[in-house]
Design a protein around this nucleic acid. Structure first.
Length: 283
DNA sequence: ATGGGGGCCTGCCGGC
DNA sequence: TGCCGGCAGGCCCCCA
């Protein structure tokens, strides 16, 4: 699913319902997602207050009054939906659990937060809050693309020795954390860089230019509430809108949108993922 | 050490 | 109408 902008959209949607609120009880409706849930997860997620709701890369982190942090990843098809919010900000009423509703959080306010994930590539784990950064899933993540540690000096250093296509390098979460297939395609289009160009063969000047472009694309997508392809929804069930602004993603054989360019968008497969780009203006 | 490919799942869409 | 192959926003793990 969800790349950084979609995860950030979900986090913001959850904020008013979870921040400083008490989880009264959690229903765990199956033993695992991608991996087995941690032991006694339902109990450890009952009678706890959510002190903070953070995001790291594509992970949502809920810091709990128990001293533990709930780590949530949405995988490819994970959704989180809110129902029965007593303050009326979300109109959806409670309903019987649907297919693929795997975990249901019952909030003391009366709201309910449901994690639904058909493909089950998502994940949940619990770890001590002061050890979150050392958690297996998080410890190898590179810098946040919207943070200060992500800058041209860093990115030049990170890419200069990589003998892999720049597309693959930017998808590598240890280089920069949070980009996925869609936004990498869009970023490379804006930068005029071919996805098949080797990272190490991309000039420092062009790598420098990538930094603000990555920030722009992500900020614009967050502003638009993320992108909706098949299954992404906001926590209130609404759609994101950034997909209407895709310039290359999923536009195979359509005309390039660059002024004066007569190119057609091409699709190539790189390490099993589709890359979309204009062979004329991306070199 | 680094890079590439397989595999994990379900659902949907297009072609026959 | 039904079946089959291909494809999908991610990422761990194994192998070379």
């Amino acid at each position: 699913m969800p790349e950084l902008p979609e995860v950030e959209t979900v986090r913001r949607g959850l904020l008013p319902v979870l921040q400083d609120q008490v989880i009264e009880r959690t229903d765990v409706r199956r033993p695992d997602l991608r991996w087995p849930f941690p032991g006694r997860m339902a109990e450890r997620l009952s009678h706890v207050r959510v002190n903070a709701l953070r995001r790291r890369s594509k992970y949502i982190l809920a810091d709990l009054s128990s001293g533990e942090t709930l780590i949530i990843h949405l995988g490819m098809s994970g959704r989180i939906l809110i129902s029965g919010d007593p303050l009326g900000r979300f109109h959806k009423k409670h309903a019987a659990p649907e297919k693929h509703d795997h975990v249901v959080f019952h909030i003391a306010s009366g709201a309910r937060v449901t994690f639904n994930d058909p493909r089950r590539f998502g994940a949940m784990d619990l770890t001590a809050t002061d050890e979150v950064d050392r958690h297996k899933l998080l410890r190898n993540l590179g810098p946040e693309p919207l943070g200060n540690a992500f800058n041209d000096r860093y990115l030049i250093e990170a890419l200069c020795n990589r003998r892999t296509p720049i597309k693959s390098a930017l998808l590598d979460q240890s280089v920069v954390a949070g980009l996925g297939n869609i936004y990498v395609c869009e970023v490379l289009y804006r930068a005029g860089i071919s996805p098949v160009r080797l990272a190490s063969r991309t000039s420092k000047a062009r790598v420098s230019r990538l930094v603000p472009l990555i920030r722009d694309v992500l900020n614009e997508a967050i502003e638009a509430g993320g992108s909706t392809l098949n299954d992404f929804r906001h926590t209130d069930g609404e759609l994101g809108y950034f997909q209407h602004r895709f310039q290359v993603y999923d536009r195979e054989s359509e005309p390039c949108l660059t002024n004066g360019c007569s190119g057609k968008i091409a699709r190539v497969v790189q390490s099993g993922r589709s890359s979309f780009y204009c062979p004329k203006c991306q070199r």
